[in-house]
Design a protein around this nucleic acid. Structure first.
Lengths: 218, 218, 218, 218
DNA sequence: CATGAATGAGTCTTCATTCAT
DNA sequence: CATGAATGAAGACTCATTCAT
């Protein structure tokens, strides 16, 4: 075992362990994944995993943090800071879908596993999600202000902007979740998914700003 | 243990066990939930759970089936069969959100747990989801036909209808998921959630039929 | 369940239960056989088995006693009391092999299962075996006396007669055991098995009486 | 627990475990022996038993294999390869009885337990038995050829040689089985048992070759 | 550093046995 | 009599975790 050369620096070994752990947690779930399995997948002995990452809980937390940071960084890197707001939203969505498509295990761990295991972990993801929602809320508000310049006086309630942002993020998550579960040629590209959501978002924004609403009373 | 009187008929006991199992699986997840915990929550001894439900796998499957059937029945009962399509969709969404709000554990088991545990179970949920998507697709197509009478000649591609239905169901699931995780006064009512989604759906439908689309080139 | 008419008298029911128990113990062994399985095989409910036979241990003991008594009775009935000793031995062996062939489950329970389960039961079988060995010893001694009339003065030590009887019984058991495990046309008939053993016994007897013995010194 | 020092190399521990398992299986039988009991008898914790031997089934199989191999090796080592056939048979029997007497638990596991538990295990023993029968058959045939030189023309049918070998092995097993169950001064020595059987075998051989047979018609 | 050896605690599952109806 | 309902006790097996070398 441990075919690869010895004396690998700690930082590298840790990343290898996290890679193996993310893959294993994604495939098996938190409880079903065993430390034996993870150590073997990482090509190291089990005590070394404990030496570096202390416990299964901390290992899982480290996975969540690393994947959450990577996702946030990917989205942040994708947006063009000085473009108009709709363009920023578009590029952010694109970055999101491309990153989740490129790292399906990471997304599975964040979205499917961490949220279903219970409290120390779900909170970790909730924080990341809150950051993303806040970012999107800002963009939508900016876009609304841009549009307002022309058709003045229509003021959009904060609450409605937040609802829109929330719905948008939820839809994006759901789409990414289904993408991660889909393989083969039927899988939508990041561009397709992003375009779908932009159409939703813009329709919703338009309707909200122009006061068009569907009502049950009809 | 078992404060309530003994000698309960089998059918009743089975429902008590399923109630306890759904609650426990929702709280802990499939793997972390122990049969001891479930039996105690049901107010019976563990062997009785095995006598009636055979194994943890079968118990979980029975939970999934019961909750899936209940959800489908709730949606089916909510729609008004002879109303116009948009009204049917609205009432169906309302039934969905009210049922998931009334049975958050059931929804958690279906949506969060069953899909993350792996294959025998995920397939079970996938079937239910496919039925719901098909139902929604039919309603959207009908609504599109109704609208077409006026603004003729605009024909809506099946593929786009399906995409819309899929996105709508995904958004509903995501919303219901967040609702289930939210407690207290901030939790949106079923009516609010349904209205939000109807606005989405109607905007998307309008845009698709009138050819309005957001494009990145802009 | 209980397709057959109700109100069967106790004695009959008990025999049905013992039949089912013997078959089940023979197939599965004492530990692996479950009371559920036995009750179902007997076509009665489990509490009834307990009402009549009290416990698994007592049920097994009852099986052993019934089968041991039946075997002893079969051998006893087979021997012709007033025939010469060799003829008595022959008919006894024939009775033994025909009974064990006709009741293989009973023989399996006595020979394979009861002796391997441990103490309360092994003793039961040991008693039966001791009775049979004593009976055979008597016959061999008688046969030796008959032969002595002619070639006088050769006195056969009791110890050697006993050894012969023991070996004969052991060989018979072994043969019956292998017969019970064999099915199809290759299975030796009772007559064949009995004849094989008579040849052994008579050879041994001859040798012992004439002082012919094999010795390692050669 | 585990009075003896810890940190024992794996190969040694495995033998300790097999020792404990053989003793426990012999005393209690396969089903009644618990892994807890075996682990305690071996002076280790239960998980270590599983780590090294995987399951109760595999542990039992390992016991059977080890004891079967040891028995075959003991017999093989006891025979003098270049001696006359009768001498070879004698020494083989002696080796068999001395080994089974020295390792009564091993013999009990092979003869009493493994054969009564059911199929994966019974087959294992059947193979060993077949090897021994074949070995004995060869020796008897050789002895018959040696004798033939003098009293020519009497040819012994293969079928009869095989029957004799089978009976001899069966008798040896039965004797060893009773020896294993007997303790104290009454227990026959290996030499006695071997001599008894050689007399049987030689008588039978003589009778077969000279055409002397006992027949019921008298 | 790295690892083979070792275990306490817990999980799923089964079974002999009883009692109220 | 006969049975459906119910359980205490135990057994096979796994896992996260720790040391001694």
């Amino acid at each position: 075992m441990g075919v690869q050369g010895k004396r690998v620096p700690r930082a590298v070994r840790e990343q290898q362990m996290l890679d193996a752990a993310v893959a294993t947690f994604a495939r098996r779930g938190y409880r079903a994944a065993s430390m034996d399995e993870i150590a073997e997948a990482a090509g190291v002995s089990k005590p070394l995993v404990y030496l570096y990452l202390n416990s299964k809980d901390e290992l899982f937390t480290a996975c969540i943090r690393r994947e959450a940071d990577a996702l946030k960084a990917a989205v942040r890197a994708a947006v063009e800071p000085d473009a108009p707001a709709d363009r920023q939203l578009w590029s952010g969505l694109l970055g999101f879908f491309e990153h989740t498509a490129a790292h399906p295990d990471g997304w599975t761990v964040l979205y499917s596993q961490a949220r279903t295991v219970g409290e120390p972990f779900a909170a970790e993801v909730a924080v990341m999600r809150a950051e993303i929602v806040a970012f999107v809320t800002g963009l939508i508000a900016a876009a609304a202000r841009d549009a307002d310049c022309e058709a003045a006086d229509q003021s959009l309630a904060d609450r409605e902007v937040a609802a829109l942002a929330h719905a948008l993020v939820g839809a994006a998550e759901s789409l990414a979740g289904w993408n991660a579960g889909t393989t083969g040629p039927g899988r939508p590209s990041g561009k397709e998914s992003a375009a779908t959501l932009m159409n939703f978002a813009w329709s919703g924004l338009d309707n909200l700003m122009t006061g068009h609403r569907w009502t049950p009373s009809r």
